[in-house]
């Protein structure tokens, strides 16, 4: 087996293993930290797909932003750190049925899709310049609307979080 393939499978193992820990772990902080490895593994998958911009963005936004925020949230609500989450199984049969249906659907989609497999990796990745041109060219309006929405959310959050000043 090629070394690259081995590395690929290592990342697959990290992603799936840590995802399992997220679900199964009774300790909420451990689950949050396991999510770090899941997100990291997904970023590695993107890198293997030659989507390096997406991989780095995944790392920056999910690991650096959302996950840190999540861990902060968990740590600041200190009552939850000591309390174990209940991970019992309820309604086993119904759940199994739904899982089987969902898994079957996904597997069916994976099998039936005609994957566009390239015989060779693309010589040039659709990197940052192209994405940037698209954002500021053909997709300028959605991009600007998204920024405006985020700005509104930011101001709203600041307004809610800010204590009323009593004069």
């Amino acid at each position: 087996m090629d070394l690259a393939t081995v590395i690929f499978y290592v990342f697959v193992l990290i992603t799936l293993g840590s995802a399992a820990v997220v679900v199964v772990s009774r300790n909420i902080v451990r689950a949050a930290f396991a999510l770090l490895f899941t997100l990291f593994g997904v970023a590695a998958m993107y890198a293997f797909l030659m989507a390096d911009f997406l991989a780095v963005t995944q790392l920056l936004v999910y690991v650096g932003g959302i996950l840190v925020l999540l861990i902060f949230g968990v740590m600041l609500t200190n009552r939850q750190i000591s309390v174990d989450i209940k991970t019992g199984t309820v309604q086993t049969w119904l759940a199994a049925l739904i899982v089987a249906a969902l898994g079957g659907t996904l597997a069916g989609i994976v099998w039936s899709t005609q994957w566009n497999i390239l015989s060779q990796p693309p010589a040039e990745t659709a990197g940052a310049p192209k994405i940037g041109e698209m954002f500021l060219g053909s997709y300028l309006l959605p991009f600007e609307i998204a920024s405006a929405v985020l700005l509104v959310a930011l101001i709203g959050a600041a307004l809610i979080a800010r204590r009323e000043r009593t004069s």
Binding site: F40, L59, V63, V68
Partner: peptide
């Protein structure tokens, strides 16, 4: 951009 992203692992 990659360096900035990688340093977020340090935070975690």
């Amino acid at each position: 951009f990659y360096i900035v992203a990688a340093s977020s692992i340090v935070v975690a």
